[in-house]
Design a protein around this nucleic acid. Structure first.
Length: 439
DNA sequence: TCTGGGGTCCTAGGACCC
DNA sequence: TCTGGGGTCCTAGGACCC
């Protein structure tokens, strides 16, 4: 090929407008707290926390609450002193509200680029490579402003060449007023990576942090400069991928199409300890109904079901017991009745008298597409059961969960979880709409 | 005394993420 | 008294086969 000769002007144009690979990570700030604040302006500038299921742990904190020293994941009862003393506003989690607002945020993001990967309820990766490098920071700011204006949710945005680096950028953005950080076009990232502690890197958890520190690696720059073969040998491929990504080499793709899930878990801690087989059975039956409904809604069938029960790992003075067992179905299924029946038979075999059970759960595994099964083994009886399941799902969708249930699922539900501080906001309920006085 | 070699598949457990 | 829930992936080791 002939070498192309550029005129001076053309050359400078070419070098200023570049379209390198650019990944953005958009992360909602204190997401659950932000959701509660949206419908309750009085708590905007105040310290706020949101609790996990059963009001157990603190899983979302406003900046004011963080400043008071309340830690992520801390048990609520341990933080209670600080909370009471500082008049911190407390909320039980309201997942249907958070889910709804999450969908609104994601929809807004898709307006900028439909190639997004919804990574969690409050995070999404976006491919912004189609925007020119020199405009990328402004694009980030525009995304942030639009999300804020359309949904009311504040976000932080980090932009870089790889997913791992966009996480780093996001980490920096969180501390900035503008909420946007781009690492695009920076030749040497070492001074920035040096300030990122090893445990703040995406993919480096507690065990790896311990291991790296033992080997003298304390920050992202040091990990970046460690040899791949050493990392792979002494850890695994995932860790070497992390290091590559820190070097700006993309190893983790954006997953633009949501892949079908491989398993489905429903488990809960009980509002109070459960000792009787009957109550445990009701709980397990309920979890089965939820899990099979979820699986049906995604047109999946399960190969096997696992049930587990356990007493509290924190209160061993009553004796600790934990057990689980799995049953394979002869033919993959999503039929509630069949799943409940199998789960109850498992429970009968693992239940032991004399323990104070704290938690139980059901796991559907080996999920696959419903259609494949239908082609192979469909019968008139299957069709009848499918119709029955469909009418149950439709009724429950319309009139609320557990309008139609099974007798084994019980009615009293004394074991149900605690939710003492729920805001009870329901975006699907007309009467929960905020009232605005005009004039 | 001395007990092959290489491949696949499955599972349990551990580590990570939010 | 009170400590969440729901996912994914990787590895080591065992079972099995020829």
């Amino acid at each position: 090929m002939k070498k192309k000769i550029f005129l001076f002007g053309e050359l400078s144009l070419m070098s200023s407008i570049r379209f390198t690979k650019k990944i953005a990570l958009v992360d909602c700030n204190s997401f659950y707290v932000s959701c509660e604040r949206l419908f309750n302006p009085k708590i905007r500038k105040k310290p706020v926390v949101v609790l996990s299921n059963n009001d157990g742990c603190i899983i979302s904190r406003s900046n004011e609450a963080k400043a008071l020293g309340i830690k992520m994941g801390e048990p609520y009862f341990k933080a209670k002193d600080i909370i009471v003393k500082n008049n911190v506003q407390v909320f039980s989690s309201n997942y249907s509200l958070y889910g709804d607002l999450s969908r609104r945020v994601m929809r807004t993001l898709k307006r900028f680029n439909s190639d997004i990967e919804i990574y969690s309820i409050d995070e999404a990766f976006m491919d912004l490579s189609n925007f020119p490098d020199n405009e990328i920071a402004d694009v980030g700011k525009e995304i942030r402003n639009t999300v804020l204006q359309w949904t009311g949710i504040p976000t932080s945005i980090g932009i870089a060449k790889t997913k791992t680096l966009s996480k780093v950028a996001n980490h920096i953005a969180k501390k900035k007023q503008s909420g946007v950080t781009s690492l695009i076009g920076i030749e040497n990232l070492d001074p920035i990576l040096e300030k990122i502690e090893i445990n703040d890197i995406w993919g480096v958890g507690r065990q790896l942090t311990k291991f790296y520190q033992k080997n003298g690696i304390y920050n992202a720059k040091q990990l970046k400069n460690k040899s791949n073969t050493w990392i792979k040998k002494s850890s695994n491929v995932l860790s070497s991928r992390t290091a590559m990504e820190l070097r700006g080499i993309p190893c983790i793709d954006l997953e633009k199409t949501a892949s079908k899930r491989k398993s489905c878990v429903v488990s809960r801690s009980f509002g109070k300890r459960v000792e009787s087989f009957q109550e445990l059975k009701e709980a397990v039956a309920n979890y089965c109904l939820n899990a099979s409904e979820k699986v049906r809604s995604e047109s999946l069938v399960a190969k096997s079901v696992t049930v587990f029960v356990r007493t509290s790992p924190f209160q061993r003075n009553f004796g600790y017991y934990s057990n689980s067992k799995t049953i394979d179905f002869p033919i993959a299924t999503n039929n509630s009745i069949e799943i409940v029946k199998a789960a109850v038979s498992i429970l009968e075999s693992i239940f032991k008298n004399g323990y104070r059970y704290q938690k139980a759960g059901v796991m559907l595994t080996g999920l696959s597409n419903d259609t494949e099964r239908k082609n192979l083994f469909s019968s008139e009886k299957d069709e009848k059961i499918n119709n029955l399941m469909r009418s149950i799902d439709n009724t429950n969708y319309r009139y609320g969960r557990s309008t139609l249930s099974l007798a084994s699922a019980g009615v009293h539900k004394k074991w149900n979880m605690r939710r003492e501080y729920s805001s009870k906001i329901d975006t699907a309920d007309f009467y929960c709409m905020p009232k605005i006085r005009i004039g």
